[in-house]
Amino acid sequence: MQVQLSGILSQAAGGARCVDCAGATIGELLQALLLKYPEMQSHLDDGIAVAINGEIYRDRRDQPIPANADVFLLPRIQGG
């Protein structure tokens, strides 16, 4: 599937805004991404949010990713 990377995350993928990666769940996807781009580790440590068809998941690694989903990776953010 095509995974879109936002801002600072794309730097860890050599500047790519969109990468090809597979995974049935968020956890699998992030694992696959890490194999491909080891520099992603520090971002994973800081926390990553995954938007699947617009819904943002910050913590749930078992969340399934449907076929043809719009998948977008964001840095984890703070609130007030």
């Binding site: 068809n53 617009g54 819904e55 943002i56 719009d70 964001l74």
Partner: peptide, 9 residues
């Protein structure tokens, strides 16, 4: 498509 990336529900 939100300006920060994902698609809105």
């Amino acid at each position: 498509k939100a300006s920060y990336g994902p698609v809105y529900g």
